[in-house]
Each structure stands twice: as structure tokens, then as C-alpha cells.
Computed example of a mutant assay.
Amino acid sequence: MSSAYWRALEAHTAELRAFLDRERFFTGDVSHELRSPLTVIMGAAEILVANAADAATRAPAERIYRAARDAAECVTVLLLLARGPELGRLAPVQVDAIAAREVERYRALVAGRPVRMQYSDGAQFSIQAPAELCAAAIGNLVRNACQYTEQGEVIVALEPGRVIVEDTGPGLPAAVRDTLAQAGSHAGVPSQGSAGTGLGLSLVMRICEYLNASLDYEERLGGGSRFTIRFADFTPS
């Protein structure tokens, strides 16, 4: 190939690298700036909860606190993703322990509904990763499963190197399924249907890429969704 071709390729590669660097720096700067106001909101909400004279005052204060806490956790995830991956330097985290905590955290979402929530810790393993990112990826899948399942069951199971979240909800829209089926695609995932609220499947995919993991989806037999996070680098415990 001609030298002109290689010069053009190098220029294009440099342009892409510069774009990715700008995106990473912008994400990090914005996330850092959001930390302080969110801390103030959480502190003020805690005071309101502690000093609430009745349930009518306490309930909205608790909602404010939970919303600010969730936003702060999202900011932490964005800050971690804005940094270059250095997973080999991190201490191992127990994925099974994180999954168990996320299940208990969102169990209240199915309270009062004919939904059975089950956690099956069939395997114990660890990965070298920020615990916050691991929790965000698993927790977002669990939360969406709980929010969109009106009846039936939500099951979180562990296999060696895998976390499986399945539900009897409405499943994913066709557009979202097509996006997930595109191997190696970096396209965003629309936030609709079971892709739902919070971090969204697009960010879960980015977390999985950061952790050298993959996110697989398949329709559950009888209706619903089945997500599997597969960790390429894991250590049995």
C-alpha cells in the first residue's frame, strides 16, 4: 500500500484517539463537579428524615435521599469508567457476595406483588475490578428485572464466571434485542422496555467491556428475559 494510505490511516487513528480522550476527560470533569452538590443534597435529606415530625414529611425526604444516593453512585461509576482500565493492580472482589447484596437491596421492589425473588449462589468466584462497577452492572439488571416483572419470578443465579439474571417480565423491544445481538457493537442501547431506568443497558455494556466481560441476552422460555454477564478473567473461591 502507498505511504499516502498509511499517513491517512495514522491521521484517522490519531483523530479517533483524541476524540475518545476528550470524551473521557469531559465525563470525568462533569462527574467530579456533580459530586459536591449531590453530597449536599444527601446531607440535607438525612437531616430532614431525622427531624421529620410525621410520615407525610419523612416519606418525600426519604425519596430525595434515595434519588441523590442513586445519582451519586452513578457519578462514581462514570468517574471509574473515565479512567484507563488498570484491573491487574486492583484487589479481588467476591462477585457472589456483591450479587447477594444487590438482590437484597432490590428485594423490596417486588414486595406486595405476586413475584417470587430467588437468589441461587451456586458458584463463588472473584475478579480484579472496582467493586462499584461490578455492583452497578449486576444491580442494574436486578433492579430492572424487579421493576418490570408484575408477576412470576425474578431469579439471580451464579455459575463459574457467570452471573445470570432472569425474569418473567415483558422482555426487550425488538430494537434493543437487535442492538445486543450485534457482536462488538458500540452503539447505544435505547432506554425503553426492560432496558428501563437507572444506568441502562448501554452503560452496563460499557462496564462489561471495562471489566473484560460480556453481556448476553436471550428470551426466557415461557416469556421474559435472561441476561448473562460472563467474566473472562475470574478466580474460583
Rank of each mutant, 00 (worst) to 15 (best):
L79G: 03
A50H: 15
H32P: 04
F25C: 12
T39A: 05
G43S: 11
A44W: 08
G43Y: 02
G43Q: 09
A50D: 15
L81S: 06
E102R: 15
C74S: 08
L81N: 08
I98G: 08
E86L: 00
T27G: 06
R24V: 00
P92M: 03
Y106C: 07
A99H: 02
R24M: 04
P60V: 01
A56W: 12
R24L: 03
E46Y: 13
L87W: 02
A71S: 11
C74I: 05
P60L: 02
L34P: 03
S31C: 07
A100I: 05
A50P: 15
A82I: 07
A97G: 04
V75T: 08
A108T: 14
A18C: 06
L20V: 04
I41E: 12
L79P: 01
E62P: 15
M42T: 13
S36V: 14
E102C: 09
P37Y: 07
A56M: 14
R66K: 13
P37V: 07
A97D: 04
R58L: 07
A18T: 09
L79F: 01
A82Y: 11
I41F: 06
L81I: 00
S31G: 11
E73G: 08
Y106A: 04
R101Y: 15
A50M: 14
R63K: 11
V49W: 00
G28N: 09
L87G: 00
A82Q: 01
A72R: 07
V75E: 07
F19G: 05
A108I: 12
R83Q: 00
V77E: 12
A55C: 01
A18F: 10
A108F: 13
A53C: 04
A53Q: 04
R107H: 15
A50I: 11
V40C: 11
R83T: 00
A82N: 01
S31A: 15
S31K: 04
A108P: 06
P60R: 01
E86R: 00
R101L: 14
D96F: 03
A45S: 14
R89H: 03
I98S: 13
D21F: 14
P92N: 04
V49P: 02
R66Y: 07
D29K: 02
E33L: 12
E62K: 14
L87R: 03
L34S: 05
F26H: 14
A91N: 11
A50T: 13
L78R: 10
L34Q: 11
P60I: 05
R24W: 00
L38E: 14
L79K: 02
L20H: 02
N51E: 14
R66Q: 13
D54V: 09
A18L: 11
A59C: 01
L87T: 00
Y65M: 01
